[in-house]
C-alpha cells in the first residue's frame, strides 16, 4: 500500500463518516439552524467525494451551487419564517415514526443487497482524469445541447415563478388606486385567506 492509496482511503473514510453523521443530524436535530449548517457540511463532504472520483469540475459546481446558493437560500428561508411555535401534538406520532423507520430500513437493506451482490462491469475503461472538464464541455455543446438549452429555460421559468410566488401583491393595488399604498392592506395581506374552514 503506497502512501497515496492509504491517504485516499483515509480521506474516503473521513468523508463518508461526515456525510452519514451529518445527514443524520440534518433530519434528527431539533434546532433547524444547526440542521442547515450541517447540511452545508454534508454538501462540502460530497464535493470531497467528487474530488476523490477525479471530477474537479463537478466538485467545484457542487460547492458553488449547493453550498453557495442552495444552503444560503435555505438559511434565508429559516430566518424569514423563524417563529418558535409549539407544534400540535399528534397522536400516534411515535408509532408513525417507527413504522416509517422500518420502511426506510427495508429500503436500505434492499439497496444494500443490490449494491453488494450485483456484478458491476468493473474495471471499465481507464478514467480520463483531469481532462474531464474539457470532456464535459464537449458533451454540453454537442450531444447534450438540447438538455443544456432546456436547463436554461427551466432556470428562467424557476426564477420568474419564484419571484411571482414570493412577492407581495401591493403593486396592483397601487396601480388601481393611484395613490399611496394604504398600510392596512399590507398589514392585512397576512390574513388567512387560504385558511380552511374544516375543524382541525
Amino acid at each position: 500500500m503506497t502512501i497515496s492509496t492509504s491517504t485516499e482511503l483515509i480521506c474516503f473514510l473521513i468523508l463518508s463518516s461526515v456525510i452519514v453523521s451529518g445527514a443524520l443530524g440534518v433530519v434528527l436535530i431539533e434546532n433547524i439552524v444547526y440542521s442547515a449548517f450541517l447540511l452545508g457540511g454534508v454538501f462540502m463532504s460530497v464535493a470531497g467525494l467528487y474530488l476523490l472520483l477525479n471530477a474537479s469540475f463537478v466538485a467545484a459546481a457542487q460547492v458553488l451551487v449547493y453550498v453557495g446558493a442552495v444552503n444560503v437560500l435555505i438559511l434565508f428561508a429559516i430566518m424569514l419564517v423563524n417563529k418558535q411555535e409549539e407544534l400540535k401534538p399528534i397522536k400516534g406520532l411515535k408509532i408513525r415514526r417507527f413504522f416509517s423507520g422500518c420502511v426506510c430500513a427495508g429500503l436500505l437493506a434492499l439497496l444494500f443487497r443490490v449494491d453488494i451482490t450485483t456484478n458491476w462491469a468493473t474495471p471499465g475503461p481507464k478514467a480520463i482524469g483531469e481532462i474531464a472538464t474539457e470532456r464535459i464541455g464537449e458533451h454540453l455543446f454537442t450531444d447534450y445541447l438540447l438538455p443544456f438549452e432546456l436547463a436554461s429555460v427551466l432556470l428562467l421559468m424557476a426564477m420568474i415563478g419564484a419571484i411571482v410566488l414570493a412577492r407581495r401583491d401591493v403593486i396592483s393595488i397601487e396601480l388601481e388606486s393611484k395613490d399611496s399604498i394604504p398600510q392596512n392592506i399590507i398589514k392585512n395581506s397576512t390574513d388567512n385567506v387560504l385558511l380552511d374552514q374544516s375543524s382541525d
Binding site: 471530477a55 442552495v70 435555505i74 462491469a121 468493473t122 478514467a127 454540453l140 438538455p147 419564484a162
Partner: peptide
Amino acid sequence: YIDGNIIRGQVFTVFVITVAAAEAAVGLA
C-alpha cells in the same frame, strides 16, 4: 468506474444540480 472515458454521469450530475437549484428556489418561494 464504468464509464471512465466518456463520463456521461458527470454531465447528468451537472443537470441534476441545475434542477435541484431551480427546485430549491421554487420550493422556498
